[in-house]
């Protein structure tokens, strides 16, 4: 599983950080960071994060 975030769409709403805190976080500069290839056990959380992204900026690739 690979996480892709379209940074042209991302507006730092932070909903993904709430849905999948083990995969997404805000860095010290306030910008979004994420684990590119998270553990498979995080799949449900990451799917949820993609669903709740207001800008629909997150996609998953297998």
């Amino acid at each position: 599983m690979k996480i892709c975030v379209d940074l042209n769409k991302c507006q730092d709403h932070g909903q993904c950080v709430i849905a999948a805190p083990d995969a997404f976080a805000f860095g010290d500069d306030g910008k979004l960071t994420w684990v590119t290839e998270p553990d498979e056990r995080l799949r449900q959380d990451v799917e949820d994060a993609a669903d709740v992204c207001p800008e629909q900026a997150i996609t998953l690739e297998d």
């Binding site: 730092d12 709403h13 932070g14 950080v17 709430i18 805190p21 805000f26 306030g30």
Partner: peptide, 9 residues
């Protein structure tokens, strides 16, 4: 305060 949103939530 987007980066603070997880905290406030």
């Amino acid at each position: 305060l987007p980066a603070r949103s997880p905290h406030y939530r």
